Each structure stands twice: as C-alpha cells, then as structure tokens.
Amino acid sequence: MHPVIDRLRHLAFGLCLALTAGLALAQGSSYEDSLSSARLGDTRQLAALLARGIDPDTVDAQGNSLLILAAREGHTDTVASLLQYRAKLGWRNLAGDSALMLAVLKGHEAVVDLLLEAGAPVEHDGWAPLHYAAFEGRLAILDKLLARGAKIDALTPNRATALMLAARNGHVDAVRRLLRAGADTALKNDRGLTAAEWARTQGNTDIADLIEQAGRGRR
C-alpha cells in the first residue's frame, strides 16, 4: 500500500476514534446533567437537554426517572416540563415508588395536582399513593386520591389498608375521612390486627374507639 494512503487511513481511523470518544463523553455528561437538573429543579437546563434529544424517561442507578426525581423534590416547573415531553407517569423505581407516590409522601400538593391532571395512576399492586397519604395524614391529598377513584381498602404487601396506617400513626382526621368514605373496619393485616387493634397497640385509644364505634354502627 502506498505510504501516503496508509497514513491517510490511519489519520481517518484516529479521527473516527476521537469523534466516538467525544460523543460518548458528551452523552455521559448529558446523562449526568439531566439527572442533576431533575434533582435540583434546574428546569432551564433540563428543558434544553430534552430539546436536544435526552430521553425524558432517563433513569438513575436506583431506577428513579427524571420525573420521579423532580416530583420527589417538589420541583413543580420541572415536573411540568417533563410532562410536556410525555414522561412515563406510571414508572416505578426499584423500591416500587412512582412520581405520584413520592410527591404524596413528601406532601408536594402542587406536584400531586399536576400528576393527577396528567393521568398518573392512583392504583397498582403493592404500596399505592393512598397508603402514603394515610400514613402521613395528608388530608387534602387523601381527598384528591379518593376523588380520582383510589381503592379505599387496597392492601399493602403486609395487608395494611389506608385506614390501618392512619390509625396506627395517630392521624385522627384522616381516620374520620376514611370512615366517612366507607373504609372496612373489619379487615386485618398480616399480624391479625384490625385498624382499631393496631391503633390501640400504639396508644391511640381515641382512634381505636372511633373505629370500633363506626364498625358497630354498620352492623
């Protein structure tokens, strides 16, 4: 082979390797930047990355999507931007949490509203948004989830209901809401405890009495 041609081929090969390495570096940087933007609520940077083609359903090592990261931190504008790019609403991380679940858990009501309006699922196997609302005693969010059709007696993996969780944690107003909505007072968790019995083990005797009274009134 002619030495000049051989040299040109080596130069072309080297240029190709350099371009590939540069592209990989740029992609890696964009990946990390997108995750950081979602976590920190840097909507401008994330919107620019999305416009350049970053996948709106990019996930981190724990399976947290960009939407989950933004929702968990309560970044309303960032969540809205991701929703414009049709980020998956029902995606759940390795722990089984969705964007809606973590927004509920943290009490980010404005984010909850955005996700519900976009059609985020309120019901699925395992822990669901209603369980987190009851666990934390978040009344307004509890009402919104029930209005969207969340199953009031849905069971967690340990067979706890929203009523049981609210009762156990001493959230009397949440208990009242759930009782008014028709929560079953007779169901038992995997330890064989009803909501009233679980409340009593935690010293929440007023809640236990309230639930037992409601149960008698339905017989």
Rank of each mutant, 00 (worst) to 15 (best):
S29C: 11
T20R: 12
A208R: 02
G96C: 08
L94V: 07
L89Q: 02
A196C: 11
L83S: 09
N189M: 08
R9Q: 13
A99N: 10
D190K: 15
D55H: 09
D173Q: 14
W198N: 00
A61H: 13
A87L: 10
A87S: 15
E32W: 13
F13W: 11
T194V: 07
F135E: 04
K188C: 08
F135V: 00
A118V: 08
F13C: 11
A150P: 07
K144L: 08
H10D: 11
E212K: 03
A18G: 07
F135P: 00
I207G: 07
G96S: 06
V172K: 03
D60V: 09
T201R: 10
T20Y: 11
E136G: 04
P157A: 08
A167E: 00
G107R: 10
T76C: 13
H171F: 06
A181D: 10
R216T: 11
L49F: 11
Y85P: 00
T58L: 14
L165P: 01
T156M: 07
R7G: 02
A199Y: 09
A208P: 03
A160P: 00
A118D: 09
H75M: 04
L102E: 14
A162R: 03
A162K: 02
A99T: 07
I5N: 11
S37D: 03
D184A: 12
G28F: 09
T20D: 11
Q45P: 00
Y31G: 05
P121S: 01
L11S: 14
T201H: 05
L116N: 06
G63D: 04
A38W: 05
A21I: 15
L35W: 03
S36F: 02
R72Q: 13
D173C: 03
R39L: 05
A48V: 07
G170L: 09
L165M: 14
I68F: 13
A150C: 12
H75G: 01
H124W: 14
A154P: 00
K144D: 12
D190Q: 15
I207P: 04
A61Q: 12
A196Q: 07
P129D: 12
L193H: 00
V104F: 02
R86A: 14
A38P: 08
A38D: 06
T43I: 12
L179P: 07
P129G: 10
V172S: 02
S37Y: 02
G14D: 12
L11K: 15
F135W: 10
D60N: 15
L142E: 09
D113Y: 06
D97Q: 14
E212Q: 11
D143P: 00
G74N: 12
L114I: 06
A174W: 05
E73S: 13
D6Q: 13
Q45Y: 01
A134P: 01
D97V: 05
A214M: 01
G22E: 13
A162E: 01
E212Y: 02
A166F: 06
R216P: 00
H75V: 05
D190L: 15
L130H: 02
A140D: 14
L155A: 12
F13D: 15
L165V: 08
T194L: 05
L187C: 06
L11C: 13
L8A: 15
P157G: 05
I141N: 02
H2Y: 04
L89D: 04
